[in-house]
């Protein structure tokens, strides 16, 4: 039977979850046989494809690009999994939320603190616009499974994927934040 079309994506996160994914070391080779990796930050595919079966999405939704990518993933994917605490809870990425709007954060970072040519960076079309609130993935799109952890340990990722590949539900057995 044809292999599962598998993808991972990376929104507003630190890539630690993908590092943990890579800690699967040699099992990645098995994974390569079990599924067809159709999109991933570490393979050379520019456009998120259609008919993806399972997608692990790392990172929260912090800017308009993230939101657009999240929508695109949702439209083209059967099982979307929030991968890591940033996607599941907002985690560190969302720690700016209590400070107020994006404007407050930008002013602090780019006007008050820098001494050399302080200015808020703006490059329409290139630099995505920050949203006022960083949101966990399930506040933006419907999410089918959750893999919490910062990062989720490699063992948990493997157990989770093996379950999903075998047709089981996208549920982590002993989920743990942090």
């Amino acid at each position: 039977m044809s292999r599962l079309r598998f993808a991972t994506a990376w929104l507003a996160g630190c890539s630690g979850c993908h590092m943990s994914f890579l800690d699967l070391d040699e099992w990645l080779a098995d994974l390569g046989r079990l599924v067809e990796i159709v999109y991933c930050p570490i393979i050379d595919v520019k456009e998120y494809p259609d008919h993806v079966d399972v997608a692990l999405v790392e990172g929260a939704v912090a800017n308009e690009d993230n939101r657009e990518m999240a929508r695109r993933i949702r439209d083209r994917t059967r099982v979307v999994v929030a991968f890591g605490d940033c996607a599941v809870t907002g985690n560190v990425t969302a720690m700016r939320n209590p400070l107020g709007s994006a404007r407050t954060v930008l002013e602090r970072s780019y006007l008050e603190l820098p001494t050399l040519a302080p200015a808020i960076p703006a490059a329409p079309g290139i630099l995505p616009v920050l949203e006022d609130r960083v949101r966990p993935l399930q506040e933006v799109i419907a999410v089918d499974g959750f893999l919490p952890g910062c990062p989720p340990p490699a063992g948990m990722i493997r157990e989770f994927l093996e379950g999903v590949i075998a047709g089981g539900p996208p549920v982590a057995r002993r989920p743990r934040f942090g």
Binding site: T89, V92, P98, P136, V143, F146, C150, R176, F177, G178
Partner: peptide
């Protein structure tokens, strides 16, 4: 704002433990 990943009590917090015990994988 319970950001476990950067908390002093990460791994030693009764709220965190109870969340795991009750299979909470998201809020």
């Amino acid at each position: 704002n319970h950001v476990c990943s950067v908390c002093v009590a990460n791994g030693n917090c009764e709220l965190q433990d109870l969340a795991t015990e009750h299979q909470i994988d998201h809020v």
